[in-house]
Each structure stands twice: as structure tokens, then as C-alpha cells.
């Protein structure tokens, strides 16, 4: 094995330089031309950076559409999910509590109309999206608190819905941050 040791060390050093150094440097340089310049795509509102397009943020006020529950409190210094199993009794209590809270804040909504994603934690804790249904179910609440007609809000949600790729692949999503910015801009 001795025969192979020096070649191994030298080849390793060369490859470390190319794969660990030059490869990411080249990509970082090209990324200057891309959205967000390789630093991540941010969202600006009223001249201020209010967040990253793809990172969920907390909206506690009922006047806003709310994102999915997060196990990292919407702070992207870390990321992760609950890792709770389907039948874990403590977990099921948490889900029940989320359902109860949702019912209190959204009177008039029937339980079977609550999309599961609103009462379950996302994988990253930073999921920026809702399905259109999960945005629709919040419309009566937002409409009441803001005094905006519900059908106007439905149009707003639809305008902020990104369809599946090419219309046929994957799922439709609503970006909660962008939707809420559009909501604030309505007036």
C-alpha cells in the first residue's frame, strides 16, 4: 500500500483545489447574473427588504394570511421538522390543539374544510407556500377584519397562485409573503 500513498496524497490535494475551490468559485461568479445574485432572492416592500421570497415568515395578526406551523419558529438560522410519527399521542394532541385554535380564529369554517397542511408542521419549518385551498379557507377571516369583499380576496389569491409546471406537472402554490404584501398594497 506504501506504493500508492504518495500518489494518493498528491492526487487528493489537486482534486481538493479543483473540486473544493475552483468549482464553487466558478459557480459563485456565474451566479452574479442570476436572480438574487447568488445570495438568495429577497423581497422588497416600500423600499425595505422584508424577507426572502422562499423563506416563510411569521404572521400572528389575523388580518394576514398565515403560513404553516413551524418547528423552528420561522427563523432560518436553522431548519427542520417535528419528526413525529403518525400515531404519536403527544403529536396528535398538538394537531388537535391547532385545529381548535384555527376554529376559534376562523368562526364559521367547517372542520372538514381545514386543509391538513395548516395543522401540520412543514419539513423545513420554513415552507413559504400554501395550497390555494389553504389560502381560500382563510379568506372569510381576512375579509371580515379588513372589510374587503371576499370575492376581491379570492381574486387576489388566484392572482398570486403559481400553477403547476407547464400547467400539468406538480402542484399549485401560493406564496404567503407575496400574498400578504399584495394584501397590504390593496388600499
Amino acid at each position: 500500500m506504501k506504493k500508492y500513498l504518495w500518489p494518493s496524497i498528491k492526487l487528493t490535494l489537486l482534486l481538493v483545489i479543483v473540486l473544493g475551490g475552483l468549482y464553487p468559485l466558478f459557480l459563485a461568479a456565474v451566479a452574479k447574473l442570476a436572480p438574487g445574485k447568488g445570495d438568495g432572492v429577497t423581497v422588497t416592500h416600500n423600499g425595505r427588504v422584508v424577507g426572502y421570497e422562499n423563506i416563510a415568515q411569521k404572521f400572528t395578526d389575523d388580518k394576514y394570511f398565515q403560513p404553516r406551523p413551524s418547528t423552528v419558529d420561522y427563523n432560518a438560522a436553522s431548519s427542520g421538522g417535528s419528526n413525529k410519527s403518525a400515531g404519536n399521542p403527544d403529536y396528535l394532541k398538538t394537531v388537535q390543539a391547532r385545529i381548535d385554535t384555527f376554529m376559534v380564529h376562523n368562526p364559521g369554517v367547517k372542520k372538514e374544510d381545514i386543509p391538513a397542511e395548516l395543522v401540520t408542521a412543514s419539513a423545513s419549518g420554513l415552507d413559504p407556500h400554501l395550497s390555494p385551498e389553504a389560502a381560500y379557507v382563510q379568506i372569510p377571516r381576512v375579509a371580515r377584519l379588513r372589510g374587503i369583499p371576499a370575492d376581491r380576496l379570492k381574486q387576489l389569491v388566484d392572482a398570486n397562485t403559481k400553477p403547476p409546471v407547464l400547467g400539468v406537472l406538480g402542484v399549485a402554490t401560493v406564496n404567503v409573503l407575496k400574498l400578504n404584501i399584495a394584501l397590504d398594497d390593496l388600499k
Binding site: 404553516r68 421538522g81 417535528s82 419528526n83 413525529k84 403518525a86 403529536y91 396528535l92 394537531v95 388537535q96 385545529i99 372542520k111 372538514e112 374544510d113 381545514i114 386543509p115 391538513a116 397542511e117 395543522v119 401540520t120 408542521a121 412543514s122 419539513a123 423545513s124 415552507d127 407556500h129 400554501l130 395550497s131 385551498e133 389553504a134 406538480g170 402542484v171 402554490t173
Partner: peptide, 18 residues
């Protein structure tokens, strides 16, 4: 619990993938 899971089991999943 009476929740209709039209989008499936969403615990630990992301909406954009489903």
C-alpha cells in the same frame, strides 16, 4: 379528528412538492 386531507399526509412535507 374530522380533517379532510385533500393534500395527503402533510406532516414533515412541503407544499411545493406534495
Amino acid at each position: 379528528m374530522g380533517i379532510h386531507q385533500a393534500t395527503g399526509a402533510m406532516e414533515g412535507k412541503e407544499v411545493r412538492f406534495g
